[in-house]
Amino acid sequence: MRAVWLERFGDPSVLVPGEAPDPVPAPGQVLVDVAYANITFVETQFRATGAGPFRAEPPLIPGNGVGGTVGAVGAGVDPVLLGRPVVSSTGGSGGYAEKAAVPAEGLFAVPDGLALDEAVALLADGRTAVMQLRAAEVRPGDRVLVEAAAGGVGSLLVQLAKAAGATVVAVAGGARKLELARELGADHVFDYRSADWAGLVEREVGGVDVVFDGVGGEVGRAAFGLLLPGGRMDSYGLAGGEWAAIPAQTAAAREVRLVTADRSPEHLRACTEHAFAEAAAGRLRPVIGQRFPLARAADAHAAMESRATLGKTLLETAP
């Protein structure tokens, strides 16, 4: 099969197209004929340094999320799954390929009304957005600041917070991204590339009740400074290269709660299924901003790292 290999940690050029043996599903596994592979920012960081939640050494086939149809089943798996459209995590590797063997118990059926590529776009980002929204307990009337509001998770948080009755303050970089955030329902938009973006938020909005911090670093710390007493901050990403790292005592002194999402397997599945159901019903729109052929995985990573992308970036296996 065709695949993309991570030969060593480094810049995007270390992602090299090549061949690999077709995986064989073990007992309890299925073989997915992959149509789309999901790319997350965490994967670009892993590729660069080996840091992150994945524990593996190159050479390997990266990729933690796939969508396609079930082409074969291992022992103990109901053959009724054959031919069904599904999405699944791979466990951290094996996704940038034409075929992937994954545990049958981790499959998600693609519901009616949801396209396969949209389901792949929601697999990681939809789950994350729903988890963060629930953890922060967003209520009607809250003023909610969403960082990286035109990204995969941020674009979904804008929609979910708006649907929950919040006033949404979207922060992103550049006119094109701000336009997308407003199109998705944001009430206020601010460019964090402006030196005084936080001051502009304070003057126009007057402080916020919730911060969804997917950037970290100086942006996350500036956003924390906008929180009102009783506010909640959920730091779930470090696209800026470091966590915001707000000390607990600093938050307590400001009467701000630093929240952490429930990451139990049961909650992860429930959040994923909720995102799928909302999208299938037309109430949540995954933004697929760019698609790359499988062999151009390096270009996809470079585009994400350059901050030139909107929404979700997918790899397609079709020639």
Rank of each mutant, 00 (worst) to 15 (best):
residue 5 W to D: 06
residue 7 E to F: 08
residue 9 F to C: 06
residue 12 P to V: 15
residue 13 S to F: 01
residue 16 V to G: 07
residue 17 P to K: 01
residue 20 A to W: 02
residue 23 P to E: 06
residue 26 A to G: 14
residue 28 G to Q: 05
residue 30 V to G: 02
residue 32 V to D: 00
residue 34 V to Q: 00
residue 35 A to I: 02
residue 37 A to W: 13
residue 43 E to I: 10
residue 44 T to K: 01
residue 49 T to S: 06
residue 50 G to E: 04
residue 51 A to Q: 15
residue 59 P to R: 05
residue 60 L to K: 08
residue 60 L to N: 11
residue 62 P to R: 06
residue 64 N to S: 14
residue 71 G to F: 01
residue 74 G to E: 02
residue 75 A to H: 12
residue 76 G to A: 02
residue 77 V to I: 12
residue 78 D to Y: 05
residue 88 S to H: 08
residue 88 S to M: 10
residue 89 S to H: 15
residue 96 Y to R: 07
residue 97 A to Q: 01
residue 98 E to R: 11
residue 98 E to G: 14
residue 99 K to P: 00
residue 99 K to H: 10
residue 103 P to K: 01
residue 104 A to T: 14
residue 105 E to P: 08
residue 108 F to Y: 15
residue 108 F to E: 10
residue 109 A to G: 12
residue 110 V to P: 12
residue 115 A to D: 08
residue 115 A to W: 06
residue 116 L to R: 01
residue 121 A to S: 09
residue 123 L to V: 00
residue 124 A to C: 08
residue 126 G to N: 07
residue 130 V to F: 10
residue 134 R to M: 09
residue 135 A to Q: 08
residue 141 G to V: 15
residue 146 V to P: 07
residue 164 A to L: 11
residue 176 R to C: 08
residue 179 E to T: 13
residue 183 E to M: 05
residue 184 L to Y: 06
residue 185 G to K: 11
residue 188 H to C: 09
residue 190 F to G: 01
residue 191 D to N: 15
residue 196 D to G: 04
residue 199 G to W: 14
residue 201 V to K: 04
residue 205 V to M: 09
residue 206 G to Y: 15
residue 207 G to K: 07
residue 210 V to A: 03
residue 214 G to R: 09
residue 214 G to F: 15
residue 215 V to H: 00
residue 219 V to W: 08
residue 222 A to P: 06
residue 224 F to D: 00
residue 232 R to Q: 06
residue 232 R to T: 14
residue 237 G to H: 04
residue 240 G to Y: 12
residue 241 G to W: 11
residue 256 V to G: 03
residue 257 R to M: 13
residue 262 D to A: 07
residue 264 S to L: 05
residue 266 E to Q: 09
residue 269 R to L: 08
residue 269 R to H: 05
residue 269 R to K: 05
residue 270 A to V: 04
residue 272 T to S: 09
residue 274 H to I: 00
residue 274 H to K: 14
residue 275 A to N: 10
residue 283 R to C: 14
residue 285 R to V: 15
residue 287 V to W: 03
residue 292 F to A: 02
residue 293 P to H: 03
residue 293 P to N: 02
residue 299 D to N: 09
residue 300 A to N: 04
residue 302 A to P: 07
residue 307 R to G: 03
residue 308 A to C: 06
residue 309 T to A: 05
residue 313 T to G: 07
residue 319 P to E: 11
